[in-house]
Structure formats: structure tokens, C-alpha cells
Design a protein around this nucleic acid. Structure first.
Lengths: 131, 131
DNA sequence: CGTCTTGTACTACTGTCCTAGTACAAGAGG
DNA sequence: CCTCTTGTACTAGGACAGTAGTACAAGACG
């Protein structure tokens, strides 16, 4: 069963975190067409969040065409995003986790690792964003 | 001069983005003790944001002991965070940017790259967070 | 049909982010 | 002393996130 995770310190609204996690699951292959998401009430109970907040996330996902909400049955993945090929994903994921291990071995803590990654990602986005 | 950047789509409050960018600059060595940050009014004008929003960020930074606000002169970096050694930073940054280039070469777009990185970082945080 | 589960809709309320505008305090420089 | 620049403080309001509670619609199941 797909499981959500929340980061209260990030400042990102709860419903947006949920939306992004489903989108990420689709991109990386954790979620596939036909998969059933946990119910609104289940997620709300697990994350100790108001059901309306979860419903808002599911509503956005349905509006984006990524899921199909069937009243009484649940919410099912229906959309298809450009997914990363499994082999490519495996190779890149392995290399990235190797880099993470090297960073941790060099003595960097979470904050420093995140700072380095964020800086590199921002540069990457800025470079292509200008192109 | 230190420059700020905003990502309106992230959902992260503006003042928090500013705080994190200064903190990141300190961690990675972009900012050093004695450096002068742009004035509240300069940042507000450059980012098209209300001066109070910038002031809130600077206030948080001063409260955290990272900067010293001198009325009439400006805001100066004064705190020292555990900085990543320059050699370590250079090596890790180079390797990470190499990985990014490989990911882009494999046909991944920004969103897919960010998804992969976020997934790996979350796993890393979760693993050490439980320890 | 009746019941259960599920998603959805609605209103009201609280708290936070952000904006807007104004005023004040401190230091530099003429 | 006067002026400029800078950071700070304050009030007021709008927009949005999240909570709380209730009610409704659709399908599955007995």
C-alpha cells in the first residue's frame, strides 16, 4: 500500500506534499495505472491530519487527471506520466545513493547534504530555465 | 553581492526561502563572517516583495545569531556554522553535478530529476532520523 | 431495501503569510 | 546640527492553509 510521509519543517502545505508524493510515485514507478490509493480517512488518521486536507490533495490529483475517484470504492491511479525507464532509474538511483553515502562519509550532516543538493539543483534549473 | 532567488511554485513562504538561502550560503562558504547582505529595501525591490517580508527573514537570521543588523549600515554576517571544508565541497559538488549531467543526458527532465533526488534524500533522512 | 464505505460539498472558524502604509531609532557624512 | 540610509516597530487588511463538523451522492454488499 502506498504510504505518505510529511515534513512539518519544510513549510510546504500539507496538501501539496501529498500531491507531490503521488506525482513522484508515478514518475518513478512506485505507482502504476490501476493502483489504489489509501482512502481519505485512512490517510487523515495515519498522518493525524484533517480529512478535508487529504480530500483537497485528492481533488487536485483528480483535476490533473492522475487519479480517478470512485465514490464508495476508493481513489485509483489512472493517469500516465512520462515515466523514467526502470533500468535508467536503477542506475541513476544507485549512483546517487553512492554519492549520498560518500557525502555522509565525508562528515556532512543532513542539512549540509541538502544544502549542497539544493544549490546544484537550483543551478541546474536556472541554467535550463534561461535556455 | 549575495543575490536571492525565489521559487513561487514551491509553496515555501518567501521569508523562509530567504532564511534558508543565507543559511545555505554559510554552510557552503558562499557567505563568510563580515560579509554584508543586501539591504532590506534592495532585496524587496529586486524580488518585488514587501520590505516587511524581507525584514522578517533578517529578523529571524539575527535571532538565530547568524547575522548582525546594524541600523544605518546594513546587515552583516557574523555567525559561524559548521562549514563544509572547501576541498570536500569541491569534490562532492563536482561529482554531484556529474550525476546531474548524466541524468539529463539520460533524458530526464527537471521534474523527474527532482523526484529522484527528493526520494533519495527522504530515504536518507528517514534512515538516520530513525537511528 | 437497508447498511456500510467511500468520495464530495458546504459553512464557520483560527492561524499564518504577505501586503500596505506609516513612524521611529541608530549610525554615517556633510 | 541636519540629512540620508539603514533596520525596526506598529496597525490594518486580504488571501490561503488547516481544522471542525455536518450532510450528501455513489457504489458494494447482504
Amino acid at each position: 500500500m502506498f504510504a505518505f510521509r510529511l515534513d512539518a519543517r519544510s513549510g510546504v502545505p500539507t496538501y501539496l506534499q501529498l500531491v507531490e508524493q503521488v506525482r513522484r510515485g508515478l514518475l518513478l514507478g512506485y505507482l502504476s495505472d490501476g493502483d489504489r490509493l489509501p482512502t481519505v480517512r485512512e490517510v487523515a488518521a495515519a498522518l493525524v491530519v484533517n480529512p478535508n486536507t487529504v480530500a483537497k490533495a485528492y481533488r487536485e490529483l483528480e483535476h490533473a487527471g492522475l487519479v480517478d475517484a470512485r465514490g464508495g470504492q476508493g481513489t485509483y491511479v489512472v493517469g500516465s506520466i512520462d515515466r523514467v525507464p526502470a533500468a535508467t532509474y536503477a542506475r541513476l538511483s544507485r549512483d546517487l545513493r553512492g554519492w549520498l553515502a560518500a557525502a555522509r562519509a565525508a562528515g556532512l550532516d543532513h542539512e549540509q547534504v541538502r544544502a549542497l543538493v539544493t544549490a546544484a539543483l537550483d543551478d541546474d534549473t536556472a541554467r535550463a530555465g534561461a535556455a
